[in-house]
Amino acid sequence: MKNIRIGIIGVGTMGTRHMNYLQDGLINGATVTALYETTKERAEWLKEHVSSEIEVFTDEDAFFRSGMADAVIIATPHYDHSKLAIKAFEHGLHVLCEKPAGVYTKQVREMNDAAQASGKVFSMMYNQRTNPLYQKLRELIMDGELGEIRRINWIITTWYRSQSYYDSGGWRATWAGEGGGVLINQCPHQLDLWQWMTGMMPERIRAFCYFGKHREIEVEDEVTAFTEYENGATGVFITTTGEAPGTNRLEIAGDRGKVIVENGKLHFWRLRVPEPEFNRTYQGGFGSPECWKVDIPVKGEETAHPGITQNFVDAIRKGTALLAPGEEGIKGLTLSNAMQLSTWLDDWVSLPINEDLYYQHLQEKMKNSSVKKENKSIALKVEGSY
């Protein structure tokens, strides 16, 4: 089988990482052959420093018409993800898209439709899905070891960002530049894992987003959200970029036990009998089900970005199942959009969300965004970072 020729769209922080591991030969069956970068200075630097076999483009149409790539990795600002993916599909290219899938679900739905119509391989760069801890937790849930899920709590506050970070670019933490704050920029992986590991999307969400609470920014930098599920389960999601030291603690309780993931370890407590059965048969008044602390073997290493890219290439060449199908990118984004919309409406939001209503509110935010006109072009050129 021939090597897959990959073109990278957006060669900023993440695009450069993808370029480097591809150039280093870390991906079997693939090579980087084309780069598309709209920042002229960056493009000139690339022309001088990358292999002469890699063509550098500064014109979008020229890049897509060149025939230099079989597949693309999109690593541009958030707003451009869907537009560029749709154009890639129209040119018969496979697509691997950086997170998030987009800024609002309406545009991502159009991207998903284009992907399905094209018949091409479409994947999301959800590299946290390669983490053996989260893979094992998903396995435990899907195999029924936890029983029916009753509660999901995730505190993820290890995103500390100083004011100088936000001041480093006029596009950062703005509605026009990034389309949101901690939910859209730092938390897409956790929001994806939340639904991927459990196989559940909530019925409704009530969220409290705080905009510019800890920093002089216009988007959310602290969020607490409460979710309700069809089976009666509940969830709490807490995140911020203004807390130090931060915490990353995921706790999932089911009617057969409980799992906690924290400090790089998985802890599993298993009930000897399911709680509903104990409750139905126990006659002793005070008491609780017998509980065992179980050591769960977690094998393997997190392969991160190269792991997702290798899986993407293998899907093209061998038909390997995708670890992170692109169409699933809309799920985590739905949670993010719903949390923002709930805050704007000061009310519960049911899923699926009213996409037109969300877009209407987002447009108002963008219209009044503090991004200066002279910086809007920068916002379209500089890649969003973690």
Rank of each mutant, 00 (worst) to 15 (best):
A324L: 06
A324E: 10
A324C: 14
P325Q: 13
P325S: 12
P325D: 11
P325L: 07
G326S: 05
G326L: 03
G326T: 12
G326P: 01
E327W: 07
E327Q: 11
E327V: 04
E327K: 12
E328C: 07
E328M: 11
E328K: 12
E328N: 15
E328W: 08
G329T: 12
G329F: 05
G329P: 05
G329D: 10
I330E: 08
K331D: 11
K331P: 00
K331N: 15
G332Y: 06
L333P: 07
L333A: 02
L333Q: 12
L333I: 07
T334S: 07
T334Q: 04
L335E: 01
L335F: 06
L335W: 06
S336R: 08
S336E: 13
S336I: 14
S336A: 15
N337R: 01
N337I: 11
N337P: 05
N337T: 13
A338R: 01
A338D: 06
A338L: 08
A338Q: 06
A338W: 08
A338I: 06
M339R: 05
M339Y: 03
M339T: 00
M339E: 01
Q340V: 14
Q340I: 13
Q340A: 11
Q340K: 02
Q340F: 04
Q340C: 13
Q340D: 09
L341N: 05
L341R: 05
L341D: 10
S342A: 09
S342I: 10
S342W: 00
S342M: 04
T343P: 10
T343W: 03
W344I: 14
W344V: 14
W344R: 02
W344F: 13
L345N: 09
L345Q: 14
L345M: 14
L345D: 13
L345Y: 04
D346L: 13
D346T: 14
D346E: 15
D346G: 07
D347N: 15
W348Y: 15
W348G: 07
V349W: 12
V349H: 09
S350K: 15
S350T: 06
S350D: 13
S350E: 14
L351T: 10
L351S: 05
L351D: 03
L351C: 12
P352Y: 08
P352R: 14
P352Q: 04
P352S: 11
P352C: 07
I353F: 04
I353L: 09
I353T: 05
I353A: 04
I353Y: 00
N354D: 15
N354E: 06
N354K: 13
N354M: 03
N354S: 10
N354W: 03
N354P: 03
E355P: 04
E355Q: 14
D356L: 08
L357H: 02
L357Q: 06
L357R: 13
L357Y: 00
L357D: 00
Y358W: 09
Y358Q: 06
Y358P: 02
Y358R: 04
Y358C: 12
Y359C: 00
Y359Q: 15
Y359L: 15
Y359A: 14
